[in-house]
Nucleic acid binder design. Structure first.
Lengths: 121, 121
DNA sequence: GCAAGGCATCGACAAACGTCGAAACAAAGG
DNA sequence: CCTTTGTTTCGACGTTTGTCGATGCCTTGC
C-alpha cells in the first residue's frame, strides 16, 4: 500500500527552533504578513533555472552539492551564481566553502515548512 | 500522536486524469521541461497578493469564493482581477460566472501535484 | 610569489511584472 | 431602455528580474 508513509519532512526533531511561518494554505485566508513570508519561498522556486538548481542540490547524494556539480543548467556561470544567491537569500539553501569548492545544501526546515503549507496534519 | 495522517491531497481518487507533472523535488534533478512546468506553479504563488487570493479561495466555505468575497487584499479591484487571471492561467484556479458574480475555486488536482513535489511516496 | 581554476560581484540591458485609473462588458432591477 | 453593481480589459507607468561579459576574490599547486 503506497502513500501510507508520512512526510519524512515533519519528523518531530526537524521542526524545532525554526520558522512556524504559516498555517496550511487551505485552513484560513493568509494574512498580509504570512503571505509575504510564504511568497518569498514560492517566488524563489518560481524560476525554472532556480528550481533545477534546488532540485539538483536536494537530490544530490550526501545532501549537498558543489557548484561545479550542478552548473549544467544552460546558463552562464555568473547566472548560476546569481540564482544560488537568490535561493540562499530566500532561506532555501545554505552554503559552505571547503577548500576550492563551495557546497550548497537544502536548509533543513525548508521542506517541512513547505509541507506545512499543504494542509498536512 | 500527530503527523501520522497522510496527505489528504493524494487520495487515489484525486490524482487520476491529471498532470503527473513532476517527480518529487528531492528524487532527482529536474529536467528543463519539468522545471518549466513546476516553476510556473511556484511563480504564480510567488506574489503575496496572489498567495492571499489563492489561500482565500482555498479556505473558503464550499470550496469556492466570489471575487467580492476575497477582494479585500489591499490593492485595487482591477489588480485583484489581474492576479486572479494569472492564477487561472497557471492552472491553479478555475472560474465560473453565475449571474452577477464570478466564482473561483482551486483546480482539484493542484494540491495533489504540489504534494507530489514534496517527496511524498 | 605566481599561475590556474572555482566561484562571486559588478555593470548593463531588454524583458517581464505589479500597479493604477479609465473604460468596456455583463447581468439584474427598476 | 437606463441605471446600478460586479467584473474584466486596456493603456500607461515605474520597478524588478534574468541574463551576460568582464572583472575580482579565494584557494591550491607549482
Amino acid at each position: 500500500m503506497p502513500n501510507t508513509k508520512v512526510l519524512p519532512l515533519l519528523e518531530p526533531s526537524v521542526d524545532e527552533g525554526v520558522v512556524p511561518c504559516c498555517p496550511p494554505l487551505t485552513e484560513r485566508p493568509f494574512t498580509a504578513e504570512e503571505a509575504e513570508t510564504a511568497a518569498r519561498m514560492f517566488k524563489a522556486l518560481g524560476d525554472p533555472v532556480r528550481l533545477r538548481l534546488f532540485s539538483a542540490v536536494a537530490s544530490h547524494e550526501g545532501g549537498e552539492a558543489c557548484v561545479c556539480d550542478i552548473s549544467d543548467v544552460g546558463v552562464s556561470q555568473p547566472t548560476v551564481s546569481h540564482h544560488l544567491k537568490k535561493l540562499k537569500e530566500a532561506g532555501l539553501l545554505t552554503s559552505e566553502r571547503r577548500g576550492t569548492w563551495v557546497y550548497y545544501r537544502v536548509t533543513p526546515s525548508v521542506l517541512a515548512a513547505m509541507g506545512q503549507l499543504l494542509a498536512i496534519r
